[in-house]
């Protein structure tokens, strides 16, 4: 409680009654308009609560909801994009890539669609992952890296049994199903290593070459150059989807694994598929 309220001799104003090390503070009255401003803010606050949604299950008299505002804004942006999307829907990927305006739009939109739909397996930058998730930035394509081939793959998927035109291939389980003996598998492995000059046992590689010509060449090519028609990956290059070591190659021959990619036709707008096609093609490996 203030105890020593006194009148300041110079100003004639009361002090607050407190003293701090000899200092006294004047209790100067507040201007009245300040008080009215304070009341006005209270009125404003109450009006705000009534007009805007302030409580659960209370939309306010204005009915304004942030969520609806953003939905409306998104719809507006969508409508703005629609003419462009319509053109992207009609055009072939080659036509899109040739038109700078369409191409810029497709690459920008493709980046977003890729992050939403593809990055889970193929990585944020299309770098893929060891163990069956192909990189899209390199120049090695299992099913082809042309715009048409990429579009087909995205549309119909790989081994997902969702489309009649899907990419379909199957490597036999040479070891697990007893098609080759362990020694033969060892020989074939040696031959596959020799395709990239990594063989250590020339005799085994020679024996393996015969088995390879018989069992593998129809899909992987005579010299391991691959065959895109059957989705037979190249074996004579530096890009290995399931690992390049002797053990990894041998294990794969014994019991191969094959990845699955869904068919995006019906899941994504044709315009988005075209945007993805152009984007993936532009990542660095497009042919």
């Amino acid at each position: 409680m203030p105890t020593k309220i006194e009148k300041d001799s110079i100003t004639g104003t009361d002090t607050t009654g407190h003293e701090w090390d000899g200092l006294k503070e004047l209790n100067t009255p507040l201007p009245k308009w300040w008080l009215w401003t304070f009341y006005a803010t209270i009125v404003w606050g109450i009006a705000f609560v009534i007009i805007y949604p302030s409580f659960p299950y209370w939309r306010g008299t204005s009915g304004w909801i942030a969520r609806e505002a953003i939905v409306a804004e998104m719809a507006e942006v969508r409508a703005q994009q629609e003419p462009m999307l319509a053109r992207l829907r009609e055009a072939t990927p080659a036509a899109i890539a040739a038109d700078p305006e369409l191409r810029a739009f497709a690459v920008a939109g493709g980046r977003v669609a890729f992050a939403n739909n593809c990055a889970g397996c193929h990585g944020a930058g299309g770098q893929g992952a060891q163990g069956g998730y192909p990189a899209l930035v390199d120049d090695d394509w299992i099913w082809g890296g042309s715009l048409e081939a990429i579009q087909h793959t995205i549309r119909h998927g790989i081994r997902s049994n969702e489309s009649d035109e899907q990419r379909q291939s199957m490597m036999p389980r040479f070891g697990a199903d007893g098609l080759l003996t362990p020694a033969q598998i060892n020989d074939v492995t040696e031959h596959v290593l020799s395709l990239t000059n990594r063989a250590t046992d020339a005799a085994a590689a020679g024996r393996g070459a015969e088995i390879f010509a018989e069992q593998c060449a129809s899909c992987h090519g005579e010299r391991g150059e691959g065959n895109r028609e059957f989705g037979g990956p190249r074996l004579n290059d530096q890009v290995w989807l399931y690992g390049s070591s002797r053990d990894q190659i041998a294990a794969f021959i014994r019991n191969p694994r094959m990845g699955v990619m869904p068919s995006w036709q019906g899941r994504l707008d044709p315009a988005v598929i075209n945007m993805l096609t152009v984007y993936v093609h532009a990542l660095g490996g497009g042919e």
């Binding site: 309220i5 110079i10 104003t13 209790n27 100067t28 009255p29 201007p31 009245k32």
Partner: peptide
Amino acid sequence: EAPHRAKADRPAAAPPAAADQPLYATR
């Protein structure tokens, strides 16, 4: 730094008792 000074041209009102000091000043 002297704060609020008296307004010389205003009629000097009778000084109110301490308890009567108004909280708000009319302009």
